[in-house]
């Protein structure tokens, strides 16, 4: 069971209440999440830790409105979004959530700048694409196609794309999973920078325990349940991380 939350529910920007998720795999029922309670607070950087199959990706998908829980509620700023329809979920992602994927998922036919513009074109208060790319340190690579960029650069473009619409929440799913150590650190620095300079509430899921040291708060998942939740008093910068 998780510890009682030190913060009140009002300041949670996004929260999962008693969320369960059951997948039907042929004749077998897989319980990916079993009554999870998790909150994300304004401007914090939260790391969600857990081994493969612990349910962290399922939780991130539900928080990011890519999936709906089998039971329980998901509340964004006091509004229950777990019963929302397809259109409302799309609207929610479009307006409020930025995603960073393990494999970057850039559109290969668009340059770095255009990949960012792809999102700014459909958002209400976007950053300028160049501004977003400057934030991730890619000013001089803006007109390159994904195939001309390294993995780390591609991931930074993906981050720029995610933050360019100025989302309230940034969800990163194993953002360093496909990168080497050095490049991974550079990407984490960018995520940290975005969190601090723009104040974007950020959740990073990873199975790399050392990354947790850069978080404000760390939640560990195990077997579809919250195993532990703690506030990190000794937050370090990504540059100081080792694994």
């Amino acid at each position: 069971m998780s510890e009682p939350n030190p913060n009140s529910e009002q300041s949670a920007i996004l929260a999962a209440h008693d969320v369960s998720k059951v997948y039907q795999m042929g004749d077998v029922e897989v319980h990916a999440l079993r009554g999870v309670n998790v909150s994300l607070y304004e401007a914090e950087l939260m790391v969600l830790l857990g081994p493969s199959g612990s349910g962290k990706s399922t939780l991130l998908n539900i928080l990011g409105a890519l999936d709906v829980p089998s039971s329980g509620r998901v509340v964004y700023r006091g509004q229950d979004i777990s019963g929302a329809d397809e259109r409302e979920l799309t609207e929610f992602r479009r307006e409020h959530v930025g995603f960073v994927f393990q494999f970057y998922n850039l559109v290969p036919s668009l340059t770095a700048r255009e990949n960012v513009a792809l999102v700014t074109e459909i958002s209400k208060t976007p950053l300028n694409p160049s501004e977003a790319l400057e934030l991730v340190g890619l000013t001089d690579r803006m007109d390159h196609f994904p195939a001309q960029l390294s993995g780390g650069e591609q991931q930074r473009v993906a981050i720029a794309r995610a933050v360019a619409k100025q989302p309230k929440i940034l969800l990163c799913d194993e953002p360093t999973g496909a990168l080497d150590f050095k490049t991974g650190i550079r990407v984490l620095e960018v995520i940290d920078e975005v969190n601090r300079s723009l104040g974007t509430t950020t959740a990073v899921i990873t199975h790399h325990a050392p990354i947790a040291s850069m978080a404000d708060r760390i939640i560990s998942l195990s077997d579809g349940k919250v195993a532990s939740e703690r506030t990190n008093d000794e937050k370090v910068s990504p540059a100081e991380l080792t694994w």
Binding site: R93, N105, V107
Partner: peptide
């Protein structure tokens, strides 16, 4: 990916 980023169907 575009759908995840918030593009409609």
């Amino acid at each position: 990916t575009l759908r995840v980023l918030g593009f409609t169907r």
